[in-house]
Structures are given as C-alpha cells and as structure tokens.
Design a protein around this nucleic acid. Structure first.
Lengths: 121, 121
DNA sequence: GCCAATGTGTACTATTTATTAAACATGGAC
DNA sequence: GTCCATGTTTAATAAATAGTACACATTGGC
C-alpha cells in the first residue's frame, strides 16, 4: 500500500461540503476531532498516505454523517465488529459467507436472505 | 496479547498424534514445513507466544488434516478470505452479519439460512 | 559412553502498519 | 503590511505484530 487517492478525495469532498456551513470542519480542527494529526489527515486527503485504521474511519463517518461502511469499503478495510461477529460462531459464519460467494449471490439475493433471517428469529 | 495456551496445546496434541504414525511430525520438521522456525513453534505450542499469522495457521491445518476454521477460531483470527468476501459486497455482507447477530441466530438458524441461499442460486 | 535428534531458553531482529512534530508557504481580514 | 488560520512538506518515529539464530539440556538408540 502507498496511498489511496479515492478515499482521500472522498474525505476531502465530504469535509469541505461540511465546512461550507460549519467552519470548524477545517482540516486542522477536523483532524483533531478525529484524533489524528493535521499532517496525517493532509496526506490522507491528498492520497499520499493510506487511510487510517478502521476506528478512525468510523469516527470520520460519524462526524461527516455518512455511512461508515461506505468509507471502510473505499479504504478496503472491514469493520472490526464484523470480525467479532464471525468469531462468535466461526464455522457457521464462514460457511455463510463462502456460500454467498460460491453461489455468486447478488445484492438482491443477499437482501432476500436477510429478510428470511428476520423471519426466523 | 501474550501467548495462547489453548491454541498451542491443540497444535501440540494434533502434531504428536500425527507423529505416532509419521515421525516427520517432529517439532523441527513440522515447523520447517509450515515455514516458521522451530523456536517460534516451540513458544507457540507452550503458549508463550501468540499464534502465527493466519496464513501459517492455514498451512498447519492442512498438514494436520483438520479444519482451518477451528484453528483460526482458537487463535482468535479470521480467515483473510472472509475479509475478501465481505469487501466484494461490503454493505450487503455487513448487513447480513449484523442481522445474524442482532437476531441472535443459532447455528441451526444459520444452517437453515445457508440452505435457503443455495436454493436461490 | 557417544551421537543424533528432540524440544527449549536467551537474547535479539524484522516487518508492517500507523502516525507525528515542527517548519513552511499562501491568502484573506483587519 | 502584519497577523492568523489555512493546508503542506520534510524528516523521522512509534507501535504493533511476527518472527529468528544460536547455544543448551535431555534422551532413546547403538
């Protein structure tokens, strides 16, 4: 890895949009609220550095009021929470995911499956 | 982290069982085949060091002829392959897992869901 | 009794991932 | 025309994770 311009640009776009109505969304202040240095955020936004760890991405999403999964996906990371869910029932969860992949399920198929799950419980 | 005796003991048990019928399952030779040093494996088996990375655990499982997911679960790690599957469809997969958790689905529920998925495709 | 292989203890090292302080350049507000 | 806040560059680390070489002690086979 060595930078992710797509992620960086997205953060910058979201942040600048916010800044229009709320000047505390400057790079420096935003970085501080996320819990990272301005240096680091600058390099991330310009795509020179990789995205920060998941925890910080999740904080960013909350502050920017966007879905964390979207940003995590851009960053090519997964929410650590999902790892915990898998660990709670490793084999069954692994089978579930592999089946979804092997059968080539579409998003619609997956959504239908979620509805099915909800009926079960 | 600082060692995982359960994981270590399990590896040792499996390896020693294999060694009974195949003397090449000595600690040293096994370590070499896994691709790690004997020192490292020794410390892992005695629970002094943490399990190695997922890749090596998967190799161990293959050599020991056991399910990799079982060993990965003991090591409190997840197969990187699952991360890749999630990344292929981040939102839908995240929803799927969170639903399973939120609804408190049992292993049987999950198995039923897998059968449902197979019917869809 | 020796040697060849076994597992272990001591003492570091490597790699990857994530991150920073401080100096700097630019532009508007006063 | 200076001050203050902006974002950026330079130059290193920091922190976490994953691993090693080499010498040592023990033991079954000859």
């Amino acid at each position: 890895m060595a930078g992710n311009p797509e992620f960086g640009q997205r953060i910058r776009d979201l942040r600048e949009a916010k800044k229009v109505v709320d000047p505390t969304f400057s790079l420096r202040q935003f970085a501080q609220r996320v819990g990272i240095s301005a240096t680091f955020l600058s390099k991330i936004e310009t795509g020179e550095f990789d995205p920060p760890r998941a925890e910080h991405i999740i904080t960013m999403a909350a502050l920017l009021e966007v879905d964390a999964d979207e940003l995590l996906a851009l960053a090519d990371k997964t929410d650590p929470e999902l790892g915990d869910i898998i660990k709670s029932e490793p084999k069954a969860m692994a089978d579930l995911l592999r089946t979804a992949r092997d059968r080539g399920l579409t998003v619609e198929d997956l959504e239908r499956t979620i509805r099915y799950m909800k009926k079960q419980s």
